[in-house]
Amino acid sequence: MSDDDLGSFSTASPDDPHMQPLARHPERAEQLIALTMVIGIVLVVLFGVAYWYNWKPWTFGVTLGGGILFLGFGITAWGKYLMPKGPFVEERHDLRGTDEERDLFGAAVTQRGAGILGRRKVLAGTAGLGLLAFGVVSIFPLLRSLGPLPALTPTRTGWKRGTYLVDSTGRAIHVDDLAVGGIVTVYPMGLQDTDQGQATDQTVLIRLTDTNYTTRPGRETWGPAGYIAYSKLCTHLGCPVGLYEQQLEQLVCPCHQSMFDVTNGAEPDFGPAPRPLPQLPLYVDGRGFVRAQNGFDQPVGPGYWERS
């Protein structure tokens, strides 16, 4: 804003074409706009009534929204059609300063500012180092106090030798429970209502056949009476793989449609998942309950740096 602008006074008469409204019939336009404003006022007041008497929620939105919309339309139309149509102009001055101002500015910063630092290098260095040290150290409480370090936690689940498989109500699964083609989400007994049980230990139990089923070499005892258990955590991003298509014998992850072949150890044969779902080795105990032989043989869920 330079001093020249103070001198740019200008006068206009009301008949100046720039001061004329855009509308060809301003009085009619004014009446129409007044009408929309009145509708807006009525609707806004109606919102008050609707709120007072607790009408349905959609009436709140229609009255409030419609009212403000009409009022806004009125004000906008006033500005567009009834106010001076212009066009008006103003000068756009160079933002840059004059060469002399630049010279003074540059000199002030470099010579009075940075130059002073250069003359006392030791002090400048120590001050800088101090600020740097403070900056680094001040991040420590901000970051480290947030939570525990991962350590071995990503690898641990609640499944151990002999753990009973229970459903979401805590009822232990018996070998006679599922028919062939059935699926149930199971948790370690006692952990079905805990965060860890639901988030990490969640497992799907599928009955593929009536007889012992081997998914891969080395897993001959893992599928007693046709019961197969896989970790429910998708190895892509950890969504629960709850979608089972029993004729295709595929587990499909609902998030990004990775497809796991249940018959061969949940090998992903489509989609972005990189690794098969870990299989939980099972056995049927003397009373017929389905239990885990052991925990999972690898960390469950998506990959991370420390996973070997």
Binding site: L178, G181, G182, I183, V184, Y244, E245, Q246
Partner: peptide, 12 residues
Amino acid sequence: TGPGNMPRFTGN
């Protein structure tokens, strides 16, 4: 009955 690809929910 678990028709088609839908799994069947019996004892669970």
